[in-house]
Design a protein around this nucleic acid. Structure first.
Lengths: 200, 200
DNA sequence: CGGGAAATTGAACATTGTTCAACTCCTGTT
DNA sequence: AACAGGAGTTGAACAATGTTCAATTTCCCG
């Protein structure tokens, strides 16, 4: 047998390891991910982890890949429930906040993980972030039809980043905590300002 | 001798360790901070690090404390050079971007560092972040005099977080890179929208 | 059933944070 | 000057953790 056939036992073990790692990060955060804990939970030997994944960093990227998929689903569902561009952008922002609130550790891992010095994030994983921006581009393009497609992509990324920053710093303990309902209100006020401008 | 007298040798050694750690983070990033490297650079024994600091996390907080001080200086200088609230907010945002650009690793460490699970960030360090928000509150309060002081503090933090998010994601390699001049232009466009709304 | 390839194992190794008993050095006293 | 006591410093030792790889097991096919 060559190797990564879909139904092979090799693939099944890789899946178990991935899910064990995901559970660890979900429950205890990225910093608490230990190779031995993962393989214990997955019911395999320590070395098997390195058979299934190049190293712990690639395992984390695997977990983040799944999280990105779920985040994308949540955002898409929220966006589809709105019937005009403004409502879509609002729905996206609140769905983003909701996802972060309900999956704090997995969501944080998306942005907290760092590759070793000098090792770039693989292209396939960078590409997985594209749908997030594209979901912002669609409604934003309707609100600001004058923007060229390059500018639209950049502007969508800026808007995404701003919302992301607001949510991220609100959920960290570096600043004094911001109660969830106040965060929602702040996001609303922020979007009101951005949307007034984008539409004008 | 009791201990931390200002001119004592004990304090001088602590300072050397702090500066060695800062240089390491500046040159190689937070992930590359090693106790042995720091003490080698500082010219002392491994154990001395734990005499001067409780552990590596507290050493990082010490470095971040210094970085926050320099960031605050840079922002204050920029803000003082502007003569109206709008110009002040623009100056603050661009000074923030400039600082991040010129001190990427030290700036990243401010937000990338995490305490061990269950250990809170000490209050004295959380308090050190307050001036950042207060510098936004001053001009924002002039632009939106109707805001109560609680709301003003929250709104200033939201604006800070949005700018922070835009700069942070632009400087990471998770999304495709955004050239520095385009980042500056995006910050300008973003602030234009926010300011139009705050003033109106 | 036997052979060979592939997968799995876990002991061993390298690196790193942290501790602590021994040692050094300074200071005040006689 | 000699000494005692204590504070400061040291670095060997320990524990935790990521990673490797030779030996073992498993699995499939002729």
């Amino acid at each position: 047998m060559a190797n990564t056939g879909a139904g092979s036992k090799r693939a099944a073990l890789k899946q178990r390891i991935l899910e064990a790692a995901e559970a660890r990060i979900r429950d205890h955060g990225l910093k608490m991910l230990r190779a031995r804990d993962v393989t214990n939970d997955a019911g395999c030997a320590l070395g098997s982890l390195y058979n299934a994944f190049e190293d712990l960093d690639l395992l984390v990227l695997g977990v983040n890949s799944r999280t990105l998929g779920r985040l994308e689903s949540a955002l898409r569902t929220a966006s589809e429930g709105a019937d005009n561009p403004e409502a879509q952008l609002r729905a996206l922002a609140h769905a983003y906040r909701g996802f972060a609130n309900e999956n704090p550790h997995l969501w944080a891992a998306l942005f907290d993980h760092r590759m070793p010095e000098g090792v770039p994030v693989p292209d396939w994983h960078i590409d997985e972030h594209r749908p997030l921006i594209e979901m912002v581009m669609a409604p934003l393009g309707q609100l600001a039809p004058d923007l060229g497609s390059d500018m639209l992509a950049i502007r969508a990324r800026t808007l995404f980043s701003a919302v992301h920053g607001i949510v991220k710093l609100a959920l960290e303990d570096r600043f004094v905590a911001l109660p969830p309902d106040l965060l929602a209100a702040e996001l609303d006020a922020f979007l009101a300002a951005q949307l007034r401008s984008a539409a004008g």
